[in-house]
Design a protein around this nucleic acid. Structure first.
Length: 569
RNA sequence: GACUUGUUAGCUCAGCUGGUAGAGCACAUCCCUUUUAAGGAUGGGGUCCUGGGUUCGAACCCCAGACAAGUCACCA
């Protein structure tokens, strides 16, 4: 179906044609060799003006101020914006002023890519600008960009803010909202500095399968897909933990992976169906070592990305300076609810939870009750980075039992701003214990717990060959980026967050279909006859006819009093 | 999945009690050679999210739906 173009889009298409008529290729193929950038000019012009006598730069036109024979415009490259000054008689020195009067003034628009050559100077108002001597069209833009104007105080006017449009058309968001671009640059810097931190230690970055026959390593509903040649179901991974541990069995002493994981669950401000997790496993270490390692890592990342360990987040200051507090989960519960979990058996604990006002039911075991107590009553207290440690064994089927207490495990979760950021274990490497824990999970799942894990027999087999004592840690990259960039929505740190598909092409309404049916029987047809034949109400007829002509399916020919409707092929 | 709010020009938004659809920016034409959220004058631009209903008459009221945001539920 033909697209309806707006007035501005039609004008730009006309300009495109005009440019071609004037011998200008609006989409040239040749390389355009720039020799500087907007930031280089803005940073270095004052101190080394001699370096900017002959510059060549390319970018997108972001604003234009035309004043007779002279004009100002701003062009934007990947670093920022700079003003350019264009004088008619300098870019078109001969009698022929077409380049200025026609090409620049009439047929170039905001959004077009141009290349300019010239020299840098300072205007009377004191703005570093480029005095243009030569101008080339590099790419014509056919859709008008939203115009965001920034005043002297740096305040944006008419900013492009509609979340739906910003996420669906992230390319536009990136062009007009510099803060958005900054967020994504920081995201990459964060990942790079984390990677450097691991590589410096000699750990090996690896890749493990995304398509897995058994979705293991976490409790979550997976996406299911089908492999035709193998005629088997495969799952998009919900975690990569069990594969990384297989590599530790295989003899690597430190492996890590930045992994896209997939979970077929609800979406909200902190959950996207695909998200990024970094998992690392290091042999001969325990969770205490991992806490120190994690602290150091976060300190270094914050320092490299932001230049400080003190992070502003939603008006709070979060300090990544080690050491972080270490609080056993049962102590945390005691502190914030007064409930000493160790004093109660399961039914008593359930009663206690009810007293505090938690919603609990009979299917919830002790582990789940503890989880609930912590999640509802304690979690939000931990704004500054805090390791919550020593979780009950039922909650952690892949984690080694605590060296001092078999009811607990050697596990920590790193809480920041009241949310979990990282999760780590002294890994369970006893194959017999591991199989039993899997079997316990199976029992839970038979009881109807849909969070319970599958048994991965190959993983148990790997453990039977022997896995060295190992500590592993997983950290949510998207959430870390959110913290460091002061964003509360995961969509703000993903280039292309998941959205429902956009509306399909408009389908015809019933009245439009009726009119079309009649018209197909005899085409063309007199308008009055057609109306009588269809037998629609005035309103429906009017709507139907308007709809059809706007879809360009019919035309109405008027000859005096005779109106004839034509069906287009 | 439930609830709340929203959807009007390319963008940001007004639109009263149901009575001819508005502003700023952008766009077009004209004036202007160092301007800057440039300015002045004039002008064009609309599937008021979609479909139904009520009404003499719907952007507005009612019903159903789409999409989004937020809250909750579910879920690390």
């Amino acid at each position: 179906m033909e697209r309806v173009l707006s007035e501005q889009e039609l004008l730009r298409r006309k300009s495109l044609v005009e440019l071609k008529k004037l011998g200008v290729n609006p989409y040239p193929a040749e390389e355009y060799k720039v020799n500087t950038s907007t930031t280089k000019i803005l940073n270095d012009f004052e101190s080394k003006p001699e370096q900017f006598k002959q510059i060549k730069i390319a970018g997108r036109i972001m604003s234009r101020r035309i004043m007779g024979k002279a004009s100002f415009a701003e062009i934007q490259d990947s670093f920022g914006k700079i003003q350019i000054y264009i004088n008619r008689d300098e870019i078109a020195p001969s009698e022929d002023k077409t380049l200025y009067n026609e090409i620049f003034k009439k047929h170039l628009d905001i959004g077009d890519f141009i290349g300019v050559e010239g020299y840098v100077f300072k205007t009377q108002v004191g703005e570093i600008s480029i005095h243009v001597l030569k101008l080339d069209v590099l790419s014509k833009s056919l859709k008008p960009l939203p115009i965001v104007k920034t005043d002297k105080d740096g305040k944006a006017h008419d900013a492009f803010t509609d979340a739906e449009q910003r996420y669906r058309q992230r390319y536009v968001d990136l062009i007009v909202n510099p803060k958005v671009k900054e967020t994504f640059i920081k995201r990459t810097q964060l990942i790079n500095s984390m990677r450097e931190f691991f590589n410096k230690e000699g750990y090996l970055e690896v890749e493990t399968p995304i398509l897995q026959p058994i979705p293991g390593g976490a409790a979550a509903r997976p996406f299911i897909t089908h492999h035709n040649a193998l005629n088997t179901e495969l799952y998009l991974r919900i975690a990569n933990e069990l594969y990384l541990k297989r590599l530790i069995v295989g003899g690597f002493e430190g492996v890590y992976e930045f992994a896209k994981d997939f979970r077929n669950e609800g979406m909200d401000r902190t959950h996207n169906p695909e998200f990024t997790v970094m998992e690392i496993y290091v042999a001969y270490k325990d969770y205490k070592w991992m806490m120190n390692f994690t602290e150091e890592m976060l300190k270094e990342i914050a320092t490299k990305v932001l230049g400080t360990t003190k992070v502003n987040f939603q008006g709070k200051v979060i300090d990544f300076e080690p050491p972080f507090a270490r609080v056993p989960i049962l102590d945390a519960i005691k502190e914030h609810t007064g409930v000493d979990v160790t004093q109660y058996d399961e039914p008593q604990l359930r009663e206690k939870c009810k007293e505090i006002g938690l919603e609990v039911d009979e299917t919830m075991g002790k582990a789940k009750l503890i989880d609930e107590l912590f999640g509802e009553k304690c979690e939000h207290h931990y704004v500054q980075p805090t390791f919550i440690i020593d979780y009950p064994v039922e909650m952690s089927p892949l984690c080694k039992k605590h060296r001092d207490n078999p009811e607990l495990t050697e596990r920590f979760e790193l809480m920041i701003n009241g949310k979990e950021l990282a999760n780590a274990y002294t890994e369970l490497n006893d194959p017999i214990d591991q199989l039993e824990r899997f079997q316990d999970q199976l029992k839970l799942s038979e009881k109807g717990d849909d969070e319970a894990m599958f048994i991965d027999h190959d993983f148990v087999r790997a453990l039977e060959y022997g896995m060295p004592p190992t500590s592993g840690m997983g950290i949510g990259i998207d959430r870390l980026v959110m913290l460091l960039t002061d964003n509360v929505s995961i969509q703000e740190v993903l280039f292309f967050p998941q959205m429902r598909p956009e509306k399909k092409a408009i389908s015809l309404t019933d009245s439009e279909k009726q009119i079309l049916e009649e018209l197909k029987k005899s085409n063309p047809k007199d308008l009055g006859e057609l109306k009588a034949a269809v037998g629609l109400s005035n309103k429906q007829w009017d709507k139907g006819m308007k709809g059809l002509s706007s879809h360009k399916l019919i035309t109405v020919e008027v000859a005096g009093d005779n109106k004839t409707v034509h069906l287009k092929a």
